[in-house]
Simulated assay, not measured.
Amino acid sequence: MKYFFFALLFFLQLHAQITAYKITPDNTLHVTKQKIKILDAKVLLFQKKKGIPLHEISDLVYENGFVYFVSDQGYLYKFFINIRKNKISSLQYLDAYVLKNKKGQTLKNKKRDAEGLALCKDRLLVSFERKQRVVWYSKNGLKIKKIKIHKDLQNKNNYASKNKGLEAVTCNDKYGVVTAPELPLKNTDVKYHTLYTKDQIFKFSAGGSIVGMEFFSENTVLVLLRDFSYLTRRRVTALMKVYLDTCSEFRVCKSEVLAKLDSSNGWKLDNFEGLTHMYANKYLMVSDDNENMLQKTLLVLFEIKP
């Protein structure tokens, strides 16, 4: 009977789509002091589509009811999301694509390590971690063209390590494409993270690693950060505002911490890496399960308090 129960549980998990998940701690003090409000959280568990597994989600974008996810295995996924009464009521898996070059060839090895995703002018922007670059893609994963990035980002030897490349990307009409490495470059002050446009830099003081970005307003960027201790297994997910129009002569900009979710305070966190704006003050963030059975792909709906 015991083996039957575990087999049944495995079967149900295998065929699950979204299941409820409680991310918030029992101590409400650690919830109410945040400047964001968690509305809902779901575990995503979908079967392969066209032979493509749904794992290692690194970022997402929202557009008129559709959500696109990108994986650091070089996959792109399309879903339809239904929000009712501030809850994720359904998530319909529509399609999956493999990121390809202009010739229609699948990206190979280190070239496929996609980490950041943004939607700008009806096209997708993807930033890559290992072969550091930012590329325009169609919504079915076909490369359109690579864009020029800041000169400091063009030398691979400037990065903190091979696996600390362009983790996040976003864009708007005023600043164009904004991207950032996960950790400060070797030749910069490690006390500051730096956001880069093609010609400008914007520094802000923060700990942890940059994993996601999204414009909050014309001059303000939301930055998602993470910290993880391999020794204690403690996870921290933080959300900050960085004001690009309020910077010193040394390019250090005003910043504000909106939330600091700490697993040592009871937050049930995973490896959150992606952030996207939906509408009004509603946002989604997603976690990377590292293709590890002990981790989860979590999709969290939250709002920024007025």
Rank of each mutant, 00 (worst) to 15 (best):
N27L: 11
F272W: 03
F6P: 01
D152S: 11
G212P: 04
F46K: 03
S89H: 09
L12Y: 09
L9H: 03
K156S: 15
R112Q: 15
R251W: 12
N109D: 15
V190S: 15
W136L: 12
Y21C: 00
D173V: 01
Y3H: 13
Y75N: 04
P181M: 05
S138G: 10
F250I: 08
R123K: 14
L94E: 14
I38F: 05
E256M: 07
D199I: 00
K145W: 09
I147A: 09
I147W: 09
D245M: 06
F46Y: 13
Y230T: 10
V178T: 04
S161G: 06
V236A: 11
G104E: 14
S287N: 00
F5R: 10
I210C: 00
K48Y: 11
D245Q: 11
L8G: 07
T246P: 02
L258F: 05
K260I: 14
T24H: 09
F215T: 09
M213A: 11
D59R: 01
D122K: 11
Y3Q: 14
S229P: 08
K139D: 01
V242I: 15
K186D: 05
V31W: 09
V223Y: 00
L294Q: 02
V134F: 10
H30P: 02
G165E: 03
E273G: 09
N271T: 06
E291L: 11
Y97M: 07
K148C: 04
R233L: 15
L166Y: 03
W136N: 05
E273A: 03
M240G: 03
Q105V: 14
V43N: 10
G116Q: 04
M278Q: 02
E115L: 05
L269K: 07
L294Y: 04
T276F: 08
P25R: 06
A41M: 08
K131F: 15
I144S: 02
G208P: 01
L54M: 14
K49I: 14
T232P: 07
